[in-house]
Amino acid sequence: MVEPIVIDGIVYATLLACMTIGFTLILMSTKIWNFAYGSLATAGAYISLTAAEVWKLSIYSQLLTAFVLSGIVSFVLYRFLVRPLSQRGISLDGLFVLTFAFNFVLLGFLNIYADYLTNVFKLRARLFFLRGADIQIFGTPGVVIISPLLAVSIIVVLHLFLTRTKFGTAMRATIENPPLAGSVGVNVNLVYSVSWFLAGGLAGLAGALLPLWILCYPNIGDVIMLSVFAASILGGIHSIYGAVIGGIIAGLAEVWGTSALSGVFGSGVIQYRPLIPLIIVVVIFLTAPEGITGIEWRGKLTKRMRKV
């Protein structure tokens, strides 16, 4: 049997990495800090709850539902709100406000759905986890093995997609220089729509696995969002690979970091866990605003070696 704190760290960090990939994808392609992103993950968590308790199905069979539903919500946000507004010449800050407001709409719907599940199906829908619905692989909960596998396969598939397929190349070109990509015949709007859909889907996927180990409530995505910001900034906001590294470091720092600190300062430290993203954000912005992938490590090392 693995220690619960180890499982905590692995599950949280890998799911955070999945979410950070999606968030960074949106940030890279459309330059929008999507404040509504966290609630898409919560939507995934509620699909898992519905699958397990209402439809009486395995959660893993409904991962695709979570992916598609969150992806569609994200796509709708882009296609029917963000794109028309940016065509009308609203500033980027205005789009942040738009996603900020959309987040509250989503939160309202999630809370209503939670109330509906509580009142109609008599479920614990405001504070729940579904550890009991998980499968066991070699005596450990399945999510411990499946969530790292998922993170690895997402990054491999995305890597292959971006480097080996024609559409992926078009996507990278659009990220690099949208007008130029448009002038050589890339459908820029399609690329943006696909990246929003993919990003939303990844949030839904991560969210669907969340209740298998972590206590969920209607605000969970919104709370994890703070860590996603920190992870994305830590990884450098211009790289998907950085997002994975940032997500894993930030997630482990949050779970294992606080538990290590609580060994030194006493158990009171654990309550201050939400401050870790804050510290990461402040330290990164003050020291290396480009994040881990933005630092030119090679130059730094050779400079130091020259000094020696």
């Binding site: 939160l107 309202g108 719907f109 509906y116």
Partner: peptide, 18 residues
């Protein structure tokens, strides 16, 4: 309504801003 009206209020404000 089978839910708290508070949440409807939140949705209303969000939609209003949008």
């Amino acid at each position: 309504l089978p839910f708290d009206v508070l949440w409807l209020e939140l949705i209303l404000y969000g939609v209003m801003v949008i």
